[in-house]
Each structure stands twice: as structure tokens, then as C-alpha cells.
Write a protein that binds this DNA or RNA. Structure first.
Length: 313
DNA sequence: AAATACTACAACCGCCAGTAT
DNA sequence: TATACTGGCGGTTGTAGTATT
């Protein structure tokens, strides 16, 4: 009773996705919500492996993804986070909800790595290089920081799990830069209020072809109009009261809310999250404050994370 | 204009952790 | 408790597009 492969290798199509396949996949997810990827190929007739379907959705078709044109702010954030977390792209991507881990990874490998190398060889632009060069080698301090980060993330996950109605998302919920809410992981923040704003105009709906882009944008609009219906259908299938998180997130695709910039918003200090908002602000400040970058990175990093983990609980 | 080199990024592969049975 | 299975992650590759010679 060996483990069967996730997909039948012989009957599986590989390579770039066609617009038609995208349409089929999106249509299916529109109806059933993301998740249960195993059933996607069989239910849709797509000759793709379930993994491929999931990847296509999360990295490409999922609404709220911003593609290309990384801003300086994003760039610096990635550099700092990479120095802090290492090549844990999913964790880094959680700080940039509009970006996929794959996107960040590619950007790092194609742009930032070279940029930093260049800077290190020539005249060093401290604002960029200091964030990385200090951490190329795994030091004891870095391991400690990574461990602290792991502990913190575990705590956060536990916190979310224990308080579904009031997810403690404040720490990691660094707001996207351009007011485009997106989904990151099923465990992340949900926006309960349906606000079908001009999401299709403010969010770049990822697609390789204009056709599929237009089609999907049309779906976004339709979806937002009929979000209640869709909600009832998809949540209904999730048996009413106990809505699956994935479906909830899916329903939020049409409720993309404009968010504030990355600078922490004052309203984040509401009573429920004030205790946790403080370290967030601290981290944000550190991540984005170029003056700090000029200083002693090691010490500051330790300080920031110590404050983070200490202040969170 | 053609050939070659380079770049960017979508997609695949293999491994691992978590969950269900 | 052990095993099977799924989904997620990070590393790597393939290829289309672009720049250079």
C-alpha cells in the first residue's frame, strides 16, 4: 500500500498554463473555494496535478496580487526581512501580502542578490548593504533571532487559533503599500465587511494574458455584486455555522478593502490590540527607518526582537 | 538582420510538517 | 501508535523576452 503520487505522471500536462485552463480553474474556485486541491483536477477535468493547480492559484490567479515594480520600500523591507529570517520566503511574504513568496524569491534571486553583491564590491550603499552583509554568515545571534522569530510565530498562530473572533493579527499585519488587501494564508486576517470597492481597478489582477485578466476582473466584479449569494453557496456547503477558513477567505476576494500604508496607523491602537500593536510599530519602525540601518545592526536586531517577543505576551 | 548572451519569472521537484484514519 | 495522505515551502530549472555584439 504505497503512497500514490499526487498526480498521475503520464496524464498530467506540464508547462505554462493557458488562459482556458486559468478560466476553468478560477471558475471552479469561484464555485467551491480554494482548498481540496486534490479534487480540483478530477472535478474540473484539468490535466494538471493538484499541486500545479494550487501553485497557479496562489502565485498567479489569486486576487490581490501585485506584480512587478517593487518599490524601494518593499525592496528594503525584503532585504531586512531576508537578513532577519533568511530564505524563508513564505514568512517574508507574510509581511508583504500583495506579493507571493515566489515573487519575492524571484526578485531576491534576480535583483537584490546582485544588487547587494555589487554594492558590497563597490562603494557600499549602507542603506541596502548593511541589512544583508552582516548576516551572510550564520552567527549565534542570528540563530537566536531565528529561534525567537519561530517562537513568536508559533505564539501568534496559537493566539489566532484560540481567538477566532478576534485574531491577534496586529503584529504581522503590516499593511500593504498600495491599499490592496490580499489573501496570504488561510490563517490570516479576514475582512468580514463586504466592501466591493474599486478593487479591480486598484489591484493588479495577475495574469499573463489580457484575456484572462479581463475575464477574471469581470468575475471579480460579478463576484462582488453577488458576494452574498456566493457566500451563501460556498459557506452553505461548509454547513452554515462552521464556515471553513478557506472559504471565508475566498469570499473575501471580492471584498478587497483599501488599507493604509505600511506606516502603522494610529487606529491600530484600539483597546483590543494595543498591547500587541506596540511591538509591531517598533518592528515597522526598525524595518523602515533608514537611520537605524546606519547603526549597529546586531544590537538593534536583538533589541527589536526581544521587544517583540517580550511585548507580545 | 542574425546570432548570442543575459534577464526575468513561471512552473516544477523534492522534502517536510501536519492531519486523518 | 503507525501509516497514509495532503498541502505548503524552498530550491531549482526551463523558457520567453530583451539586450548586446
Amino acid at each position: 500500500m504505497g503512497r500514490p503520487p499526487c498526480c498521475d505522471k503520464t496524464g498530467v500536462k506540464k508547462g505554462p498554463w493557458t488562459p482556458e485552463e486559468d478560466i476553468i480553474l478560477v471558475s471552479y474556485i469561484q464555485e467551491h473555494g480554494p482548498g481540496n486541491w486534490r479534487g480540483v483536477p478530477t472535478n474540473t477535468g484539468l490535466l494538471r496535478c493538484s499541486k500545479s493547480c494550487r501553485l497557479r492559484w496562489t502565485n498567479y490567479l489569486r486576487p490581490g496580487i501585485k506584480r512587478g515594480n517593487f518599490t524601494d520600500q518593499e525592496e528594503k523591507l525584503i532585504i531586512h526581512l531576508q537578513a532577519l529570517l533568511g530564505n524563508r520566503w513564505a514568512a517574508i511574504a507574510s509581511y508583504l501580502p500583495e506579493r507571493t513568496d515566489n515573487d519575492i524569491k524571484n526578485y531576491w534571486n534576480t535583483h537584490l542578490k546582485k544588487k547587494l553583491k555589487k554594492l558590497q564590491n563597490g562603494d557600499t550603499d549602507e542603506s541596502l548593504s548593511s541589512g544583508n552583509s552582516s548576516y551572510q554568515s550564520i552567527s549565534k545571534g542570528q540563530w537566536e533571532r531565528r529561534l525567537q522569530t519561530d517562537i513568536h510565530m508559533a505564539k501568534r498562530a496559537l493566539c489566532e487559533a484560540l481567538s477566532l473572533e478576534k485574531p491577534c493579527d496586529s503584529f504581522l499585519d503590516l499593511k500593504p503599500f498600495n491599499g490592496c488587501q490580499s489573501l496570504t494564508s488561510p490563517t490570516q486576517t479576514q475582512t468580514p465587511t463586504p466592501t466591493p470597492t474599486s478593487s479591480t481597478s486598484t489591484c493588479t489582477y495577475a495574469s499573463s494574458t489580457e484575456n484572462i485578466s479581463k475575464l477574471l476582473q469581470g468575475w471579480m466584479r460579478n463576484s462582488s455584486n453577488s458576494s452574498n449569494n456566493d457566500t451563501s453557496s460556498s459557506e452553505g456547503s461548509a454547513s452554515g455555522t462552521t464556515t471553513t477558513v478557506k472559504n471565508s477567505n475566498f469570499n473575501n476576494f471580492s471584498t478587497l478593502e483599501p488599507l493604509s500604508g505600511i506606516q502603522s496607523s494610529p487606529e491600530g491602537s484600539d483597546d483590543s490590540g494595543s498591547a500587541q500593536q506596540m511591538p509591531l510599530s517598533f518592528l515597522e519602525t526598525w524595518l523602515l527607518d533608514e537611520t537605524i540601518e546606519q547603526g549597529d545592526d546586531e544590537g538593534l536586531l536583538d533589541l527589536s526582537l526581544d521587544d517583540n517577543t517580550a511585548g507580545l505576551f
